[in-house]
Nucleic acid binder design. Sequence first.
DNA 1: GTCTATATGTGGATAGAC
DNA 2: GTCTATCCACATATAGAC
Lengths: 197, 197
Amino acid sequence: MRANKGERLRAAAVQMAYEQGLERLTLANVAAAAEMPLGSLYYYFKTRDDVAEAVATDLSGQFLDRKADWDAAGSPAAALKGFARMSIALEGQLARYGCPVGTLLAQTGKLAEPTETRAGQVLVELTGWAATQFAALGLAKDAAQAEARRMLRGLEGAAMMAHATGDTLHVREAVTEIEARIDALAPEQAEISGEDA
Amino acid sequence: MRANKGERLRAAAVQMAYEQGLERLTLANVAAAAEMPLGSLYYYFKTRDDVAEAVATDLSGQFLDRKADWDAAGSPAAALKGFARMSIALEGQLARYGCPVGTLLAQTGKLAEPTETRAGQVLVELTGWAATQFAALGLAKDAAQAEARRMLRGLEGAAMMAHATGDTLHVREAVTEIEARIDALAPEQAEISGEDA
DNA sequence: GTCTATATGTGGATAGAC
DNA sequence: GTCTATCCACATATAGAC
């Protein structure tokens, strides 16, 4: 838990941005959460935008870095399921705060072009990754991309509705649907891709 | 276009909240957009929260009030399709700014319980309405609710992804999927529920 | 590197003339 | 009802001692 001050600030900012939204995050609160005076924060971040940038970068990494883990699952079907199940693991947080990427997009996307925001790029990149997996499962390029779009829509929609209703059922239903479609595409691998540690 | 000042203020606030987000909406800007000095705004709204409240109420009404129109479509299948096609009509806005309800939820849901926000309630209410329609289509209560949840997830997910990618294709794909499921449930009504004026 | 004190700017809100 | 002028709180950011 012990970490240098810069790291403590970054972690506090990410947490607060997710819980209360990036807009109402104040530097004084971030510093307080990291247990240091406001002045110290400015040694690590020149401006508030730098803090917001760090939050977006951290968030992007949290998702994009896992692609390697999913890829290591052994088969495209298992990789895709690993991706989908991440939502299950996070379902409590999704119901309480919404999808971290989606809610950040809802905030930052109101300004710049959504596709130029980190959050938008994460969703685009994850869609591309999923499309590659579906293609490896035997789908033609167009079909694989359509299937990837369907998957991301399902996961994002589930997070949104879980947030709206407070019911994690939405997440489980969406993931069950996705898994069924993966199994339908790769029936011979349906048993191989079981639970991962 | 001519309207009394209170109405002009409300309209300006709704527009600005949707385009730039509720958080960065300033009363000075709202007043300026409605072409009047800041002081005048306070005759119509006591506090900033009152303005935010008016925005949420207006937004809720925009969606909930249409239920009557869809109901008037003649059949449950047509009603559901009318609902789904609203997203098509709005696809440009969805891609640019995201779902008005969803993005508002992402902002207000960070504070109070999401289910207690207007945005959250709208999604819950629309889900209930859709479930009633699916039940009228012959589905058992549980199945109808599940189908309604699937529909709302699809629409919200599509809006989110369209916003992230800037591509309205997501909306059209999602609606096509939904229509296909409705037709599968009510094949004898598939032709009746054509285009509406 | 770390902290205190403070400058600066902005936005919500009020007072009071008209 | 409408507007001008202003107050006040708060958040970003800087200056400078230690």
